[in-house]
């Protein structure tokens, strides 16, 4: 369903798409079945001259089974859906594969600051690369993100990754992703955060290792200056507490 609209570009994206399709099939069949029976009954029992309605209480066992059996069948479907839903959930949110790189994502009214680890691949070192509204990652690399907010709630959402996570002031939330394909895609702020929530977009650049290397070089030459005031940022980060 969604894979035809938004490319799946992370390791868990296709699992999630599979889950969505599974739910679509299970509920879709029930929907078609219920609506089918429903319209058929309306047609079959339309008022006819001289035909009176039947007196059916629905309290007897042989009548009631027409609704109890379907509802056991729904229960079975539920169990399947729960199983796959939890599997995908555990993969995205509950497991944390070892990081090959870590980025810090700082949200604030109304923009993103991304702190990349830089050439030494360590966060909070001198060579960190800080950008606004642009995140650069290497394909096939397991990233941890450390998500923070400086003011209100925001939400880091990358549709192609099928990743979404609220940012909460006062907390650092850690999660992961691993891109499976390259390209330039949308980052959205998916939690209302005030007047310019509708403009709080960003872009993610998923690059091959060579491209990524090139980008890092261009950065260390100081081609792009961070728009964010360094001092304000470091004090708030200290207040939040770097884990």
């Amino acid at each position: 369903m969604i894979e035809s609209l938004v490319e799946p570009l992370s390791t868990y994206a296709s699992d999630l798409d599979f889950l969505v399709n599974l739910v679509a099939w299970f509920t879709g069949i029930w929907l078609v079945l219920s609506e089918g029976v429903f319209f058929w009954l309306i047609w079959k029992y339309r008022a006819k001259e001289g035909v009176r309605s039947e007196y059916i209480t629905g309290e007897e066992a042989h009548q009631k089974r027409w609704v109890t059996w379907p509802h056991y069948a729904v229960l079975v479907c539920d169990v399947f859906i729960i199983y796959f839903a939890v599997t995908v959930w555990v993969d995205i949110k509950q497991t944390l594969p070892p990081a090959e790189a870590t980025v810090r994502i700082i949200s604030q009214q109304w923009g993103w600051t991304f702190q990349h680890p830089g050439p030494d691949n360590k966060l909070d070192t001198k060579d960190d690369i800080r950008t606004t509204d642009e995140l650069h990652v290497k394909v096939g690399t397991t990233y941890h993100y450390k998500l923070e907010s400086l003011d209100v709630l925001h939400d880091f959402s990358v549709p192609v990754f099928r990743l979404k996570q609220d940012a909460i002031p006062g907390r650092v939330i850690t999660g992961w992703f691993k891109a499976t394909g390259t390209g330039e895609h949308d980052i959205q702020c998916a939690e209302i955060c005030g007047i310019a929530h509708g403009m709080m977009g960003g872009r993610i650049f998923i690059e091959t290792p060579e491209e990524h290397e090139k980008w890092m070089q261009s950065q260390s030459e100081g081609m792009v200056a961070s728009k964010i005031d360094d001092k304000a940022l470091s004090t708030t980060v200290a207040a939040v507490g770097v884990p």
Binding site: I2, L16, V20, F84, I92
Partner: peptide, 11 residues
């Protein structure tokens, strides 16, 4: 149900 399935709700 799509939304209640936690995995799918991430999207």
């Amino acid at each position: 149900i799509f939304l209640g399935a936690s995995g799918a709700d991430v999207y």
